[in-house]
């Protein structure tokens, strides 16, 4: 039996909204410790990794590990009916369940229940090495969203370079070019923290960075981690309960 109640149901809704443009079908991997999602986009350019620890839920029971295969667009349709202060209770049988039951409860008088059909999804789980990164940038999530949205009008590739003076986001395109420099700042309102061992410069597809910023409502700050010649990690922490992490393979000079 899998049964778990998330008091702030809107957190789960925000997770599905954040990933549904990148991931069509995915497994909710439920275990005693957590509910997790790991999936590549269809082009295998990026990877989404979601974690919600059991402690994020007010009641959590998972008798044995289970993978619940969902279509994110269909899940999103059901979550449209979630009230903004509703809790969600998830229920599924142990042995290859056909459906996932979700109860939406808000005020005392209304309980809505929905059943989402599940499917078998064959996925390759990728092992992500837990290695330290050369540069880690923490900045406001809405500021990062604004930067990648603004730069997309100039071109499709963004160079992110982290150096002594700060983090530079640069785009070169047909109509011209642009640079946005973000420097370390202690100001409470828009604090920027940059930890750098060695300068790093990598190129990324703005289209994907824009997809990632769909997770902005989940977190006040985003953490961007880079090392030479490896995928960037764009992490949206979910309080102390988990995260949505996006990994994006860099573009390489031919």
């Amino acid at each position: 039996m899998f049964e778990a109640q998330l008091v702030e149901g809107k957190t789960f809704k925000a997770i599905i909204e954040a990933i549904k443009d990148l991931v069509v079908d995915c497994n909710l991997d439920c275990s005693e410790e957590e509910v997790a999602i790991q999936s590549m986009d269809s082009a295998h350019v990026s990877l989404v990794a979601v974690r919600l620890s059991a402690s994020a839920f007010s009641n959590y029971r998972c008798d044995r590990p289970n993978s619940l295969g969902i279509n994110t667009a269909n899940m999103s349709k059901i979550l449209k009916m979630l009230g903004k202060d509703d809790s969600i209770t998830f229920k599924a049988e142990d042995e290859s369940p056909d459906s996932l039951t979700m109860l939406f409860e808000g005020g005392k008088s209304t309980i809505a229940d929905f059943e989402l059909k599940l499917m078998d999804i064959e996925t390759e789980q990728l092992g992500i090495p837990d290695t330290p990164y050369q540069c880690t940038i923490q900045m406001r999530a809405d500021e990062f969203q604004r930067i990648v949205r603004d730069l997309q009008v100039l071109g499709d590739t963004c160079t992110i370079s982290c150096g002594k003076e700060g983090v530079r986001f640069s785009v070169t395109g047909a109509i011209g070019n642009g640079n946005i420099l973000v420097r370390s700042s202690d100001e409470d309102k828009d604090k920027v923290t940059i930890n750098m061992e060695e300068p790093v410069e990598l190129n990324f597809a703005l289209r994907y960075l824009n997809f990632f910023t769909k997770a902005t409502p989940l977190a006040e700050n985003v953490v961007i981690s880079m090392s030479p010649d490896v995928p960037v990690v764009v992490e949206y922490p979910i309080e102390e309960f988990g995260h949505v992490k996006f990994y994006l393979a860099p573009k390489i000079e031919e």
Binding site: H44, Q125, G127, P231, L248
Partner: peptide, 14 residues
């Protein structure tokens, strides 16, 4: 020109 790398080229299948 730049070529888009693949994420599966960086992380091995478990």
């Amino acid at each position: 020109d730049m070529k888009q790398g693949s994420i599966s080229g960086f992380f091995a299948v478990k």
